[in-house]
Design a protein around this nucleic acid. Structure first.
Lengths: 253, 253
DNA sequence: CGTCGTACCGTACGTAGTACGAAAAGGCTA
DNA sequence: TAGCCTTTTCGTACTACGTACGGTACGACG
């Protein structure tokens, strides 16, 4: 009955857990790291909704409530999952600033890596937003991703804005892709199958003459993408426009 | 125990409900429209998570299970909520294609209207993705938003791509804003308050010298935006870049 | 060997979606 | 009016969730 929403983690607890050297195994071998790893495994396989405290505990062979000895609650566990997932984004040798193609090549690399991240961990798109948990890996990520933009003629504020723009775009298109993948899993039908089944139903119910542009464009796009949308194309097309726009901003100096 | 995920609606049932003239009041006056309106009212006030079948029924003064006579389940109800919310986006007189400033003005109008939509109905950002439910209002929206791009030198596929890019950007920045608003509500602290409280804690735990660019840029951005991020600025900045990029694409013809 | 701090976890409460089947209210024909 | 039938309404119950609470048992230390 306390005023605490399950969706909002205690920031201080999260921060301590995130940055602290949490490694005292306890007597059953239970560790924060093990809990987080188990949760990520479940989320990778079955989505964030499938991550229940019961199921995490079961996977670790411990009682459900034992988890609470190491982790304050599910919200903080989610924070830990996110920062851990950020952990393997960039190696030292493989930094965005080490990519060819200048700032543009760097941003393309950032976009590709983040796309891969969301592909591997689609559950990250389901994490409830709010104040982002500034863990060590998130900080490392921010640093690495800003570097290609440093010294190219953008102000500090603009550097932040450009990176945010790119990341928002990648997240948006990844969300599209994850949604399509989930729809495919849940319905058991591929995108094309679904449309061939449901198109007649839609035709019967909607009068295409009321939507002349929409039906023309929608059909063209559907044919091109073999479905309602194509996340890979959306990512590439949008990123090209965005980086062109950023180039124009830089050139305008 | 059936194989149906609660997150995936039956498309045929949704389509029939969406397009059908569902208006047989039943003997308690219960209507699909009334159910949807009640659900939207709850979602507007307390978020999508607060929309439970029990609470919707309570608001309407009927038994919980009576809802299932009119609506197959919660997933389909969500589809109906979304299409209904789309309903009041554009009046006939107020269409994007009637805006000044050509295609660019039209897209800026589309962006502003969608931003307002997400501001009024933040729960739309929590709707689980998947195959979008093609209701009448979604179709109208697609038609209205494509029109400013018609005949400006883009191919049909490019028209779809540009619109998707703009809408993805608006959704992404709206998500940022909704997250910040929710964090503020849950924590009871404004953005500046939160950072003044938690900055010392972060300083203690992270070594700023390991993140030279990040700490410099982050501090500049934080000062500029009076917080970790500024959704309004992110929307405007990103939209300007995107439309510059689209202009370059058109000019390249 | 006794004591204590901590890790562990069984039970229980309140929340959710919805399956099932009973009950009740009209609408119809005879 | 009586009887029946279709449809709407909804009480109960099942599973699954996060986690508060309180008991138990292990390992270290005196």
């Amino acid at each position: 009955m306390s005023g605490k929403r399950a969706s909002e983690a205690d920031p201080a607890r999260s921060l301590a857990l995130l940055w602290g050297s949490h490694s005292r195994p306890g007597r059953s071998g239970l560790t924060v790291r093990a809990i987080v790893e188990a949760a990520i495994g479940i989320a990778d396989a079955d989505g964030l909704d499938a991550v229940s405290m019961r199921r995490v505990a079961e996977r670790l062979g411990v009682g459900t409530m034992s988890l609470y000895t190491h982790v304050p609650g599910k919200a903080e566990l989610t924070d830990l999952m996110v920062d851990t997932a950020y952990g393997r984004l960039y190696d030292d040798v493989d930094a965005p600033s080490a990519q060819p193609g200048g700032w543009r090549g760097g941003m393309e690399f950032v976009a590709a890596r983040n796309r891969d991240l969301y592909r591997r961990h689609p559950w990250m798109l389901q994490v409830p937003g709010g104040r982002p948990a500034l863990g060590p890996n998130a900080s490392l990520k921010y640093e690495a991703e800003l570097r290609p933009l440093d010294g190219v003629g953008l102000s500090d504020v603009e550097m932040d804005s450009v990176l945010a723009l790119v990341l928002t775009h990648v997240e948006g298109t990844a969300r599209l892709g994850a949604g399509m993948a989930r729809a495919q899993r849940d319905s058991g039908m591929s995108e094309t199958e679904w449309w061939t089944v449901n198109a007649p139903l839609l035709d019967k119910v909607m009068d295409a003459s009321r939507f002349p542009v929409a039906s023309r464009v929608g059909e063209a796009a559907g044919r091109e993408h073999q479905g309602a949308a194509d996340p890979a194309h959306a990512l590439a097309f949008g990123l090209a426009r965005i980086l062109d726009g950023v180039a124009a901003l830089i050139a305008g100096r």
